[in-house]
Simulated assay, not measured.
Amino acid sequence: MKETFIGITIGDPSGIGCEITIKALDILKPFNNWIPVVFGDKSVIDEMISLLKTKINFLPYNPESGYNENTVFYVDENAVSGPVVYGIVDEEYGRASLIYLESAAQMALQGQINALVTGPVNKRSLKRTKSGFIDQTSILKDLCGVNSADTMFLTGKLRIFFLTRHIPLRTVPESLTTGQILDYIKKYMEYLKKFGIVKPTLAVAALNPHAGDNGLIGSEEIEIIRPAVVMAQKELLDVRGPVPADSVFHLAKEGLFDAVMSLYHDQGHIAAKTLDFFRTVSLTLGLPFLRTSVDHGTAFDIAGKGIASPENMVEAIKAALTYHAYFK
C-alpha cells in the first residue's frame, strides 16, 4: 500500500462527529499523499453535507478505483434507520458508533488503513447497547486482543501520559503501587523513543498538594511514588519526581521534561485543556496501529446546528498523518 490511508469514524450519529469530520476534511483538502476513509452511514454523511453545503467528492471505498486529491472514500455501514435525531441518548446510535469503530479497526488490522482517527461517542448510548463497553479504547483493546493500551495527550509540545483513567477519584490513592508506577515508567519511556526522542526525560506528577510536603499532606509520595522513581533511575532512566502537580505541566511545556505521567484522569486533562482546549489530541498507544482522537464529547447541545468547531478533528487527523509511521 503506497498511499497513506487514514480511517476516520464519525462517532455517535446524534452528536457532532459527522459535522466536524466533514468540516475538517474541507479544511485539509487537497489531500496530497494521503486518502481519507470515513466510516459511517452514507445517509448521515449526505444529510450533513446538505446542511453544511460542502462540496466533497465522496466515493465508496475502493482503492483500485480512480481518485484525486479532493476524493474522500466512505464505508457505508447502514447502521441507522431514518433521518438522524440530533442530541439524544439512543441505543441505535450507540450501536452504530460501535459498528463504525469495529469496521475501521478490522481494516486497520488488515493493513487497509494506516491509522485510525475516532470521532466522539456517547457513553450512555454505548451502555444501552449492553455491549459491556462505555469507551472506545476498551473496545479497541478487545478487538485487537491486547491487554493494555495507553493514552497520551499531545498539546503542542506538551505530552501527558495517564497512569489511571476512568476510575473514581477516591479510589486513585489505593490503586497506586510502586511496581505499577515503575512498569509504566518503563513503558512510557519506550513510547517516547518511538517518537524519535533518543534520551527521553519523564516527570512523574505528585498526588498530594506540594508533593505531600515531606509527609505532612499525605504519604503516597514517600511510600509509593518516590521509590518507583528511584528504581527507574537505578536502571539509568531519566525520570524525575514526584513533581508537584501545580507546576509539572508548565515545566514540561517549557521543555524541562519530554513528558509527564499524570496519576489520574482530571490531573492531566485539566492541564492540557486549559493550555489549549481545541488543539489537545488523544493518542492511543499499544495497539497494532496508531489511533488518535478528538478530546471532546458529542456536544449534544449543538449537534445538527452546523456550528461545531472542527479544530480538534483537524489536529487529530494531522497527528495521525505525522505519527502513524512511528507505530507500525
Score class of each variant (00 low, 15 high):
residue 78 N to C: 14
residue 104 A to F: 03
residue 194 K to D: 15
residue 301 D to C: 11
residue 304 G to D: 04
residue 203 A to W: 01
residue 271 A to Y: 11
residue 221 E to G: 09
residue 70 N to V: 14
residue 244 P to V: 08
residue 172 V to R: 06
residue 296 H to E: 13
residue 41 D to C: 09
residue 70 N to Q: 14
residue 88 I to D: 08
residue 178 T to F: 07
residue 161 F to N: 02
residue 12 D to Y: 01
residue 140 L to D: 03
residue 148 S to Q: 12
residue 260 V to T: 02
residue 64 E to C: 14
residue 219 S to R: 11
residue 33 N to P: 11
residue 306 G to D: 04
residue 126 L to W: 12
residue 294 V to G: 03
residue 15 G to W: 03
residue 63 P to F: 06
residue 264 Y to M: 04
residue 242 P to Y: 10
residue 81 S to A: 15
residue 102 E to W: 10
residue 9 T to H: 11
residue 87 G to H: 03
residue 222 I to W: 00
residue 177 T to C: 12
residue 327 F to Q: 09
residue 249 F to C: 06
residue 228 A to Y: 10
residue 323 Y to H: 13
residue 303 A to V: 07
residue 57 N to Q: 10
residue 62 N to P: 05
residue 240 R to I: 15
residue 121 V to A: 09
residue 113 I to W: 00
residue 264 Y to P: 05
residue 153 F to T: 04
residue 18 C to G: 08
residue 87 G to Y: 08
residue 203 A to G: 06
residue 257 F to A: 02
residue 121 V to T: 10
residue 82 G to N: 06
residue 292 T to C: 08
residue 261 M to Q: 05
residue 83 P to D: 15
residue 37 V to K: 01
residue 76 D to F: 04
residue 293 S to T: 02
residue 75 V to L: 10
residue 2 K to I: 13
residue 78 N to I: 12
residue 43 S to V: 14
residue 29 K to D: 09
residue 104 A to R: 01
residue 221 E to Y: 02
residue 236 L to A: 15
residue 326 Y to F: 15
residue 214 N to G: 15
residue 205 A to Y: 00
residue 68 N to A: 12
residue 316 A to M: 09
residue 300 F to Q: 05
residue 168 P to H: 08
residue 78 N to Q: 14
residue 23 K to Y: 03
residue 93 Y to P: 04
residue 115 A to P: 06
residue 95 R to Y: 11
residue 132 G to L: 13
residue 303 A to F: 01
residue 177 T to M: 14
residue 302 I to S: 06
residue 56 I to H: 07
residue 154 L to C: 11
residue 69 E to C: 15
residue 125 S to P: 04
residue 220 E to T: 13
residue 130 K to H: 15
residue 263 L to I: 12
residue 4 T to G: 05
residue 196 G to I: 13
residue 40 G to F: 01
residue 241 G to K: 04
residue 51 L to F: 07
residue 34 W to A: 09
residue 298 T to R: 00
residue 210 H to F: 10
residue 314 V to Y: 00
residue 236 L to G: 14
residue 202 L to M: 10
residue 29 K to W: 10
residue 2 K to Y: 13
residue 299 A to S: 06
residue 10 I to F: 04
residue 261 M to P: 01
residue 81 S to F: 14
residue 274 T to D: 06
residue 42 K to V: 13
residue 165 R to C: 11
residue 220 E to Y: 09
residue 20 I to P: 00
residue 71 T to W: 08
residue 104 A to Y: 03
residue 115 A to K: 08
residue 13 P to M: 09
residue 127 K to G: 12
residue 84 V to Q: 01
residue 71 T to P: 06
residue 294 V to N: 04
residue 207 L to P: 04
residue 232 A to Y: 08
residue 267 Q to C: 03
residue 312 N to C: 14
residue 16 I to C: 05
residue 135 D to I: 05
residue 285 L to T: 04
residue 212 G to K: 02
